[in-house]
Design a binder for these strands. Sequence first.
DNA 1: TATGAATGAGTTTTCATTCAT
DNA 2: AATGAATGAAAACTCATTCAT
Lengths: 196, 196, 196, 196
Amino acid sequence: MRISDRPKGLAREGILAAATHLFLDKGVDKASLSDIAKEAGVSKGTLHYHFASKNDLIFAITEAHMETITRELLQLLERMRESPDRLFALLMTSLLEARDRGRLHLHLVREAVAGNPELREKIAETYARWEEMLAAALITLFPDHRAASDIAKLIIAIIDGCVIQELVREQRMDFSVLIEALIALNRPFFTSGSRS
Amino acid sequence: MRISDRPKGLAREGILAAATHLFLDKGVDKASLSDIAKEAGVSKGTLHYHFASKNDLIFAITEAHMETITRELLQLLERMRESPDRLFALLMTSLLEARDRGRLHLHLVREAVAGNPELREKIAETYARWEEMLAAALITLFPDHRAASDIAKLIIAIIDGCVIQELVREQRMDFSVLIEALIALNRPFFTSGSRS
Amino acid sequence: MRISDRPKGLAREGILAAATHLFLDKGVDKASLSDIAKEAGVSKGTLHYHFASKNDLIFAITEAHMETITRELLQLLERMRESPDRLFALLMTSLLEARDRGRLHLHLVREAVAGNPELREKIAETYARWEEMLAAALITLFPDHRAASDIAKLIIAIIDGCVIQELVREQRMDFSVLIEALIALNRPFFTSGSRS
Amino acid sequence: MRISDRPKGLAREGILAAATHLFLDKGVDKASLSDIAKEAGVSKGTLHYHFASKNDLIFAITEAHMETITRELLQLLERMRESPDRLFALLMTSLLEARDRGRLHLHLVREAVAGNPELREKIAETYARWEEMLAAALITLFPDHRAASDIAKLIIAIIDGCVIQELVREQRMDFSVLIEALIALNRPFFTSGSRS
DNA sequence: TATGAATGAGTTTTCATTCAT
DNA sequence: AATGAATGAAAACTCATTCAT
């Protein structure tokens, strides 16, 4: 809030915002540092003053992105106590509603997988953390249920899968329908009708 | 069969194989045409003789990749008639077992999403086709079930989601456990015990 | 001589000539690849086609430079049989007469010493070779003389030292005088007059 | 002595020390002002406060370096009166024993030769001064000897040449051997045995 | 068909220098 | 005296593409 804060932070924040936008839009590889500097309204020199390399920038943005999702997931799980039966629907609509976030997520995950081991490690750790958070919440809500950790894994996978579907097919997924499908799924296919 | 045929086909196939390998390994952007030409053992000139642009090459590889999966899906659905109750497990283990395929898939999807609309369209169409194939198979196997199309969508999403998990966390997913989870999922969480 | 030779070799030779000239003139660090490309009349892309990195170019030029001196030294030692008493004068005037060569030599040696171990090794080997060649020639000319190898070392050092003097003070050294000095040197200073 | 004096002098001295170390280590061109500021533990702003440009810094360091050698040469020539017969050996071992000094010397000389005329002039003057000092000392020690000035020139050249040899070949020169060689040199090679 | 030489636009990165505080 | 944020010019290097042969 102090005046002296602004000049310092502003450039850095502006760069992060510009980079986030361009990474999201064109992907990490195709967004050049020139593009980012231009969009942030700073010189390339300034950009490198704040982020020594492109990798640093990617890392900073990934950290912020993962942190944002984690925070949101936490809030979501809090709210869930009031209406546990809608957990799944809430989770998916909330986490997916920002299509931009999904887009950025895909780009960062791909960057991590394509030869950026540190980044991959970072993302893997966050995934593991989400899984734990989800599993813990499930156990609180349904103390008598086993396999909470597996269900957590499954939920995360479904969300990621839906992100891809949305991005590729450019159409919203209708979750109410998906959830119906999930409910219906178990009866005929896995138990092969034996559950009377 | 004529002698003159062979070199022609061979060079093209060699390029495709090299490009597939490098795209899979480093991603589409980071694999340069020089790398590919070198790995294929041809000159850059030859590469451009067979594929006018990098985009052409990407497109050809995407087509081949999607076609491979489609073919495999078809065979899988055939085999399914004999043991319909294991459909899901079979689907997932088969489609995921080649980790390379998942890796390539991620890279191609990302390339499509990041500013390559033609490619995106191509992939979207194939996804739609898979969905139809799956839905049709489900209807054949379980004629009295509704929402086959939604379940198809869900299955595809789960598979994509698992691919990402595997790539990021570098650990195989245990499907038997996931399927258990799926079965267990519907009871407490969605029906919240209301199922009589 | 064939027509097909020319286009191929020409660019490479042109680049080497331009780089030699600029390295000599401004030093290795201050001669940029842009400068070199411009002087050679080719694009920067072409330059990198022929020499993958600046280091490659430096190395190629160093090799050529050292080779030139070696060749010349060989010819000199041949000619020496006819007038062995003028060996030293001949050596120094010949090797130093091309001031450009000395200039280039200083730049390359400095580059080698400042963090280019491969280059340093290359130059060190050539120095050792010169020393051997010189020592062998001395032994042939004066079979009864010991310490040929040490004298060779000394001669090389004197030449290098004179190169530096010339470059820094921008004035030719007068060798006849230096040689006089060398002759005079031993009597009073080292033997302190004891040599009757 | 006042408190306010110290920080001022200290920063400047720290910068000079850091720059000397880095120039010596990596060469003048490859040592960046950022590196130097970091090693000196000051900001880049401070560095520019004390030295308006990199050239200023180079110049200051060169002056200090040349002054150090001059001072040492003076002391050496003083001590020489007591054992004039060992002049040469003493000179060379003393001036060369600090290998770092030779390294720095090479870098500064090269910088001077490569497009820094002021610096070149400065160094040339100092060389001339050394020559005079040496010649004067020689005349004092050996009043009846002619060509003292040429011998001085020769001695300086030999020292510079040995510095290069040492740096490139990374092995100490054995001076006793070199001196032997010098003594031996004059008889057979130059006079070709004619010295009755 | 196939090549390799050539290109130019573009990439990330480095760096000496300036300046408000 | 000292700082650190900012800059722009220039560095080395990459790469898809073109083209004569």
